[in-house]
Structures are given as structure tokens and as C-alpha cells.
């Protein structure tokens, strides 16, 4: 039987030189390609955004298509911290500790109005955005955002992962960013 549906797409090959039996490309591109297609997210879900995330991981929206099949509930094996929901001031040190325990390279996605800015909870007990305690790579707006937006946010993370230097953590920018948040920067 002839296969008529040709929508199956493979990961795009990075630029490089190809010949009989070899393919040469930049190490950064190859590493970026591998990393971006195997992001393990750590879901830090505290409220309704977490429910939307569950839909995103479910069969209908299926985040697993993008190589995020395996959620990591241990920060040690996670690449992407997804903070979803209201973070109270009392929860803030826990978010920070989870972030600190993640191994480099690591990225942070802030989902929804509460995680990004405190949202409707402009009050003494709620942290006014997680970027006050940890650096954030991608923000998803919405209250709560739809699963399509979550997928869009994850794809934005993919772009960062693909295009960043694989040695980002050694750059001066990154080190000073970490130090501005009070984290020890690696050597």
C-alpha cells in the first residue's frame, strides 16, 4: 500500500558538509539538536495552570511528541523547570531550592499570570512573579493559558536550547545573571 500521508517530520538536519559516509557540522548544533528534542520537564504545578498542563501532557495535545515524554519529578534529572500557578511567598524558597538542585544546562518556563507576575493576587502573601527569585527564560501569558499556548512556550524553549551555545553556563553573561539572583556560578 502506498503511504499517502507524508506529514511525519524528522528533526531538521543542521547546516554542515556531507559526503560519502560522513557528515560534518558544528558541535554546538549537534548538541543543541539532541538537547532540544529530549527536554525533561519538572512540573512545579500549584493551581489551575497545572490542570491545563495535565491536558497538555494527555493524549489529545500530547507534549510527548516533542521529546518531553518523561516528566522528571526529581530536579536532578530535569532540564526544564515549569512553574505553573500561584507561588506564595512561603513557597518561594522551595521553588528556589528546586531550581538550585537542577543540573546545568537548565531552563525555566513560567506559565500563567500568577507565576509570571502574581496575577490577580496582588497581596502581601503572594510572590509577585517568580522572576524575583529565579531567572526565567520563557513566559506564557494567560489565566490559565490553553494547552496550545503551553506547547508554543515549550517550542520557544526548544528554540533557545537549539541556538544557545552548549557551553552557555561558562559565559560571563550567564554567570553575572546567576550572581544577580544570588546563586553561586559554576566554574
Amino acid at each position: 500500500m502506498e503511504i499517502t500521508d507524508k506529514k511525519v517530520s524528522l528533526a531538521k538536519m543542521p547546516d554542515g558538509h556531507e559526503g560519502a559516509g560522513f557528515f560534518a557540522t558544528k558541535l554546538d548544533d549537534a548538541v543543541g539538536l539532541a538537547r532540544k528534542n529530549s527536554i525533561w520537564p519538572l512540573p512545579f504545578a500549584t493551581s489551575c495552570c497545572g490542570i491545563e498542563f495535565m491536558a497538555t501532557m494527555g493524549a489529545h495535545y500530547d507534549l510527548a511528541r516533542y521529546g518531553s515524554e518523561r516528566l522528571s519529578f526529581s530536579p536532578r534529572q530535569a532540564d526544564l523547570l515549569m512553574v505553573m500557578g500561584t507561588i506564595s511567598k512561603k513557597m518561594a524558597p522551595i521553588v528556589r531550592q528546586v531550581y538550585e538542585q537542577m543540573a546545568e544546562p537548565k531552563w525555566v518556563l513560567s506559565m500563567g499570570a500568577c507565576a509570571s507576575s502574581g496575577g490577580i493576587f496582588d497581596t502581601y502573601s503572594v510572590l509577585q512573579g517568580i522572576d524575583r527569585i529565579i531567572p526565567v527564560d520563557v513566559y506564557i501569558p494567560g489565566c490559565p493559558p490553553r494547552p496550545e499556548q503551553v506547547i508554543d512556550g515549550v517550542l520557544k524553549i526548544h528554540e533557545l536550547v537549539q541556538n544557545e551555545s552548549s557551553r552557555r553556563r561558562y559565559s560571563e553573561d550567564y554567570k553575572s545573571l546567576m550572581e544577580s539572583y544570588g546563586f553561586e556560578s559554576g566554574k
Binding site: 512561603k90 502574581g118 496582588d122 497581596t123 502581601y124 502573601s125 509577585q128
Partner: peptide, 25 residues
């Protein structure tokens, strides 16, 4: 329930409800 380093007793009316660290509002 609140952070131990909190200086106020938030349900007393003299203390504002909103987070005072915000500069964008």
C-alpha cells in the same frame, strides 16, 4: 501561615493589602 520574616500583621486595617514591593502599579 505567613513568612517568619514578615514585619506586619496583615489583617489589621492599618496595613495595606497589596504587596508593597511592586513599582509597576
Amino acid at each position: 501561615l505567613n513568612m517568619e520574616d514578615m514585619l506586619i500583621h496583615p489583617l489589621r486595617k492599618e496595613f495595606p493589602l497589596e504587596d508593597q514591593s511592586r513599582k509597576d502599579k
